[in-house]
Amino acid sequence: MLQLHGIDVEDHHGLIADKTQPLGNGPLIWFEVDDFDALVERAHEMGVEILLDKHCNPPDRNGGPNHWEIWMKDPEGYKVVAVSPDGTADGEWKP
């Protein structure tokens, strides 16, 4: 999934784009993975720059995708978001 957000729009997660950065300014690259917790562990082990560590979307778990997310930066400065499949934050989903 590719999301394009307005540079001055905060939505529920705050501003996404950083006007002072030449790269990674706005685009978010999202990957849905079945092994989300393993990915989070590997990201920490590798020293990946974590922007938002593991969290539920939506934060109040009321509607929305009800999945886990982790927001990171790639070596070029672009934001990359890994997510668990929709409906997995309640712990009942099975692949």
Rank of each mutant, 00 (worst) to 15 (best):
G24D: 06
G24C: 04
G24M: 00
N25I: 03
G26T: 07
P27N: 02
I29A: 06
W30I: 15
W30L: 03
F31V: 10
E32L: 00
V33W: 09
D34E: 12
D34R: 10
F36Q: 01
L39T: 11
E41T: 15
E41Y: 10
R42G: 05
R42H: 12
R42S: 12
R42W: 07
A43W: 07
A43K: 01
A43E: 00
H44Y: 09
H44C: 06
H44F: 05
H44A: 02
H44K: 12
H44E: 13
E45Q: 02
M46C: 06
M46V: 04
G47T: 06
G47Q: 01
G47P: 03
G47D: 04
G47K: 04
G47E: 03
V48T: 08
V48I: 09
V48N: 03
V48P: 01
E49P: 01
E49T: 08
E49F: 07
E49A: 01
E49Q: 11
E49G: 02
E49W: 08
I50P: 07
I50E: 05
I50N: 00
I50A: 04
L51W: 05
L51T: 09
L52V: 12
L52A: 09
K54T: 12
K54Y: 10
H55A: 05
H55F: 14
H55G: 12
C56W: 14
N57R: 15
P58V: 11
P58A: 01
P58M: 00
P58F: 10
P59G: 15
D60H: 13
D60W: 14
D60C: 10
R61Y: 13
R61D: 15
N62Q: 14
N62W: 12
G63W: 14
G64W: 11
G64A: 11
P65L: 14
P65R: 13
H67F: 10
W68N: 05
W68I: 03
W68P: 00
E69V: 11
E69M: 10
I70N: 02
I70M: 07
I70Y: 07
W71I: 09
W71L: 09
W71S: 04
M72S: 04
M72V: 04
M72Q: 02
M72P: 05
M72E: 00
K73D: 01
D74C: 00
P75W: 15
P75I: 09
E76Y: 12
G77P: 11
Y78I: 02
Y78K: 00
K79W: 15
K79Y: 08
V80A: 00
V83A: 04
S84V: 01
S84I: 04
D86Q: 12
D86H: 11
G87K: 14
G87Q: 14
